[in-house]
Amino acid sequence: MSEPFEPKIVAFVCTYCTYAGADLAGTSRMKYASNVRIVRLPCTGRISPMFILKALQKGADGVLVSGCHPGDCHFAQGNYHARRRWTVFRALLSFTGIPEERIKFSWISAAEGAKFAELINGVTEEIRSLGPFEQYQELQKIIETQSTY
């Protein structure tokens, strides 16, 4: 009997909102899927698209990027800049064939612990149903198995 597929999801979150929201989910004893690995950053404006590529390179099946709601940024405008960047980057990933469903973006405030737990569960389920991101991981395997590189 094979193990059920457990997706690896990397979440890049800002420390002021989504991370605090995740904290609230924790202190409120809410249960959510343990598939998510949270990386805390100062602001969504700090989240470079390179992070998303790196996560995929290292075998993530899905990526979640989350920060403060528009208008709530600790640094006033970081999330507005991030939003533009994601709009463009998302179109680019989609155009190169990286499924949009694997890269999720959300706004979660420090008060939205329940939304955080719900979102993580939802995203985990969705990516579980998509299965592992084999197409991309295959590319990494080629490097590991071929010493010529």
Partner: peptide, 25 residues
């Protein structure tokens, strides 16, 4: 090392994505 520098397909993929992103707009 953000982008694989060898010219294997993954590195090429990353390079071309990054370049396109930097040229956006």
């Amino acid at each position: 090392q953000w982008v694989n520098t060898s010219s294997h397909t993954l590195g090429n993929f990353e390079w071309n994505i990054v370049r396109a992103f930097h040229l956006a707009g």
